[in-house]
Amino acid sequence: HWQTLFEQEFLRCKRYEDTASVIMMDIDHFKQVNDTYGHQIGDRAIQLIADIILGSQRETDACGRYGGEEFVILLPKTSLNDAVLVAERLRKQIEETLLPLGKEYNDEQLKLTVSAGVAEFSNEFSIAENWLEKADAALYESKEKGRNQVSK
């Protein structure tokens, strides 16, 4: 489970003064997708983004869902700048991948975007949750600035 790995990575970084980063990613206007197309399309949107994330991760990375349409990606031994590059690459790939809606929507395709927040491990964090809070604050900044972007 990603939460266990996250907690272990937090303790490892604290003990060995190592670096790691975390990305929090949220599907933009997800409620609107659900309200417009229904939960089945919403579920397919989540699956599509999960597949893109899983398809791009390294063996040492961990990812999982954090709430409804939010994802957490743990990048061990990854600096903040490198993690921002990873998040930006994922954001762009998601934006370029269209979700087919099927016959009932005249084979239309839905363009999805994500907002992301990136935080690097810091010894100032007293608990692992602080690390997630920092990434979440950066994610909130991406949303405030208009969505479909990465903040740190």
Rank of each mutant, 00 (worst) to 15 (best):
E133P: 00
A50T: 10
D136N: 09
T19L: 13
L98E: 13
D43K: 08
E69R: 05
L74C: 05
A83P: 03
R15C: 06
T4W: 12
A116R: 07
E108Y: 08
A87M: 03
H39L: 04
A138D: 06
A50M: 06
V84Y: 09
E124T: 14
E69S: 09
K103H: 14
D107V: 07
D82P: 01
S122D: 11
Y16G: 06
T78P: 09
I127W: 06
T78A: 06
K152I: 14
T60C: 13
E59R: 07
C63S: 12
V150D: 03
I41E: 03
L80C: 14
L48W: 08
G67Q: 07
N130L: 00
Q57L: 15
H39R: 12
F71Q: 03
V118G: 05
K145G: 05
Y105A: 13
M24P: 01
F71P: 00
E129Y: 11
E70I: 03
V33M: 00
H29C: 06
K103L: 13
Q32K: 14
T97I: 01
Q8D: 12
I127P: 04
L98N: 09
E141P: 01
D43P: 08
G146V: 05
T97H: 00
E95Q: 15
A87R: 01
Q32D: 13
H1T: 14
S56H: 15
R91M: 10
T97K: 08
R89V: 10
K92C: 11
D61S: 02
I27V: 10
N106A: 15
G68P: 01
A83I: 10
F30N: 02
H1F: 13
V118L: 08
N130G: 10
A83G: 11
